[in-house]
Design a protein around this nucleic acid. Structure first.
Lengths: 167, 167
DNA sequence: GCCCAACGGCTGTCTGAGCAACTATAGCCG
DNA sequence: CGGCTATAGTTGCTCAGACAGCCGTTGGGC
């Protein structure tokens, strides 16, 4: 048996990326949960909060997250039920509706963000000296630019432009 | 509004990791699908194929993948139905059963692996010069070691070592 | 040898996500 | 203006996975 295949440096490299991602994601999830949020809910709050008027059309929200439009419908359903955001009719297009963060949603985000940043620092950026961190991020950026499936996923639009930058 | 929070370098850093991971994962999934495999199925085949005797107890398989034990039961159900692997009773412990890769499963893995490696090289390791790649992997390794939730996930055992032994 | 706590695996139930189908609206073209 | 196609969002269906509970097995203590 070609046991060596499994020690291929390429496999190892992917393993590192996947494990680092999984580990970090798990830490994030644990912290989100302390504030009654799931990862997608946090993502939705972030995307909305950084958008003009704290709002985004359902479709645009879908394009900026890793969700399908139906997925967005469901998440927004839940979050609206929980009072974190609400739907608002689009005045210029009666097919569209906006998801708008409520005061409660912003408050929740404000409560969650500091801890989130602390975790990033503790387990990710703070693990490396500045130079090493930059080197890693530079590598990640180049890989990201290569595989970039739009912005985060789901969008075939190469330059969303007004969508704000990366991340 | 503290718009700057969203441009925090820590947020950006996480964004890079997440997007690189997501993009790569999507490429992998597309290639797996060409061979009739899902990501978890590929993972299961890999884990089993690299284990002594091409087999692993259900619990150990769960510990090495990102699945719960019930998740493993379901995946193994499907893969057994598809002939990629089969269950075998453990002779020394009647509670345990092994998942064993079949010839068909090994063949499927052999067919899938070359393309997988090619994709890794094309979109990940090949995107950087050796020095930059090493720098990135070094960073990822340190992050991984920090967040390490066991091996990949679920296992608190730092060195699984001799899994073949019957408890 | 018997009892009991721990373990390994499986199943019932629930949640969350995607796809495809549907409804309503918009915008174009004649 | 009337119709036709594309678009925005929602809903039905299905599937994958987690959790909790169950059953059979094991191994230790007595």
């Amino acid at each position: 048996m070609d046991q060596n295949v499994f020690d291929d440096p390429r496999i190892t490299a992917v393993g590192l990326l996947v494990e680092a991602h999984a580990g970090l994601t798990a830490r994030f999830a644990a912290q989100y949960e302390q504030h009654g949020l799931s990862a997608v809910e946090f993502e939705v709050l972030m995307r909305l909060a950084r958008s003009p008027g704290n709002q985004l059309r359902m479709t645009d929200l879908a394009a900026q997250t890793s969700l399908s439009t139906s997925g967005v419908t469901r998440v927004v359903d839940r979050m609206e039920r929980d009072g974190l955001l609400c739907r608002r009719a689009c005045p210029s297009d009666r097919r569209s509706s906006y998801a708008v963060v409520t005061a409660s949603g912003l408050k929740r985000l404000d409560e969650t963000l500091p801890g989130h940043l602390r975790i990033i620092e503790q387990w990710f950026t703070g693990q490396l000296e500045p130079a090493a961190l930059d080197a890693m991020l530079d590598g990640l950026r180049r890989v990201r630019d290569a595989v970039h499936p739009g912005a985060t996923a789901g969008s075939t639009d190469p330059v969303p432009a007004a969508h704000a930058g990366p991340a």
